[in-house]
Amino acid sequence: MNKIAATLGLATTLAVPALALAPKAEARTVTLTTQLRPYDGDGAYLAIYLTDARGKFHSTLRVAGSKAKYYKHLRDWARGRTAEAGRIDGITGASVGSGQSLRASVEIADALIDAGYQIRIDTAVEDGRDNPSEVVVPLTAAASGKPVAGRGYVAAFRFDM
């Protein structure tokens, strides 16, 4: 059954992350740290992604939560990534529990930094809240290393590069 589920998961998440897999010289490693608040409920689903200044989806950085059927609750990300033409299985992990934190290292193209792009986070918890774009931070050198609180489950988010 797992196999079938996995296959279906693949089928329904066929989307290429326009993640900047550019040559090393033109990209840098960015560490994303997301600390959740304590809350009552099962593990939270998170999508961390890039948008342009107007909020238009660019690419997926990280997803927490493996059941594709719940992705629609990460509304802004899920709506945006319909245009995405790649897979997210390589950057998808387990959901994040109450009060826990998620650390991830991603490669981001230099060309996107200080170029008006934003890092956004959508969160959702079953029988809890959906928080589309609860965190919106500019992808700038100046914003790096400064924690930002979300309106929903995210107590603090920071990126370091």
């Binding site: 059954m1 797992n2 079938i4 589920a5 279906l8 329904t12 594709a68 059927k69 992705y71 629609k72 509304r75 899920a78 709506r79 319909t82």
Partner: peptide, 13 residues
């Protein structure tokens, strides 16, 4: 739950 029969719920928003 395992997607073997449909639940009619769209995966997409």
């Amino acid at each position: 739950t395992f997607g073997i029969v449909p639940d009619g719920d769209s995966d997409r928003p």
